[in-house]
Design a binder for these strands. Structure first.
Lengths: 215, 215
DNA sequence: ATAGATATGATTGTATACAAGATGTTTGAC
DNA sequence: GTCAAACATCTTGTATACAATCATATCTAT
């Protein structure tokens, strides 16, 4: 028998929400879930509380917990915050990132380019994430790094969409190189600026997608 | 009988941790707390989970939950992140804040000045908070606003310390006026820059306090 | 005497039972 | 026929009981 069923259930539920199995506004019934997972209500309640604290669901006292997926407006806001967070990371990393970190960035970029050449989208996604995570780490600020990782993770699913735009990946690579150059030159302002627009573009592309859906 | 005992307990426990009743590393025993609050272990466990998700405590499976107050390093990191967050807010608010918002900033500054003249520290603290919160609101980005409010709240207790520095309040007022001027001029870069250093100074002052304690 | 193993006690995790509030339906009055 | 109030039912919140795991102490063997 496994330990900490509640944690595993929370993880599973999060994936179910992200994969769209549970729609926005849907109520997560304790007894139903308990039956589905073959456990009592206790671990289910603990798992639901995790979802609530992660902002994936909302708990209304004496009413239950309801799925709360971000709408278009909230997503745009999150992308904007991500852009500012990344800019801050770039600014701080410019004067703090190690030689080793810079080398890791160059390596990650090479992997990105290889993924593009091989048309391996999955590989590109993961290497692109790694690239940004190296910059977070380069801030030498664990708290900031943690927050950046959290938001990056939340936006993961939506960031994938905008990369389908024609020529976006190639453009993205050019920006990556600019970022590395700015960091190498310890140019904090430029690193912040390039990173901000690099991420802000994702939000704009996403907005275009949403607009096209509706129009 | 009140509803949602667990939530009230969580609130009380948070205050107890902040007030120093529970020291860093201390274990929060479920049965002891249950006796103290005259409830069963169930609401205590829910309350502890809230503390954990708020980063006030840490849960080690099968071991218990332990108080985790931020150390000097983590606090410096949080101040640094706050500085960057405020800078981002200033940048965005510069082009988005309404006339009404600008007027509220001016009013809040007047109240701050009055509090200084009356030597009313408590009043100054609250009006100073209000000043920054107006800027958060001015970003027209609810997500960013929420994050800024969260961090501001977390640093509240520690921010009070540095205002005792000689002349800090007067200097702070000058900076506030600079910030308002930059926002009025819709100068995003300047607003960001002034806000960043305005908050960063708090971190530095705090560091000086810590250093003096140890030396 | 010390190191390792085992047993015992304590503590967390889970299940079940009970209490209290919320929702929805039915019944009655106007 | 409609509105309101009371009742029935369902769901959440809390208490208690049980199971599983971890820490500590004791006992044995080298």
């Amino acid at each position: 028998m496994e330990i900490r069923r509640a944690d595993k259930i929370a993880e599973t539920l999060e994936q179910l929400v992200f994969s769209g199995t549970y729609r926005d506004g849907e109520r997560l019934d304790e007894v139903t879930l308990a039956e589905q997972f073959n456990v009592s209500r206790t671990p289910i309640r603990e798992a639901l509380q995790v979802l609530v604290s992660d902002g994936i669901a909302e708990k209304i006292p004496r009413r239950g917990v309801f799925v709360r997926q971000p709408g278009p407006v909230q997503l745009m806001e999150m992308f904007e915050m991500m852009a500012e967070l990344e800019a801050a990371c770039g600014r701080l990393a410019a004067s703090r990132i190690s030689e080793e970190g810079l080398q890791q960035l160059v390596d990650a970029n090479s992997s990105c380019q290889k993924a593009i050449d091989a048309n391996d989208h999955a590989k590109y996604y993961s290497e692109n994430e790694k690239f940004h995570q190296i910059i977070y780490r380069g801030t030498a600020n664990c708290y900031l790094e943690k927050q950046a990782l959290r938001l990056q993770s939340k936006l993961k699913a939506y960031r994938k969409m905008q990369l389908r735009f024609r020529g976006r990946m190639a453009q993205s690579m050019t920006e990556h190189r600019e970022i590395v150059d700015a960091l190498k030159a310890e140019d904090a302002e430029k690193a912040a600026h390039v990173l901000r627009s690099h991420v802000a573009v994702q939000g704009e592309k996403f907005y275009q997608l949403m607009a096209n859906f509706n129009g």
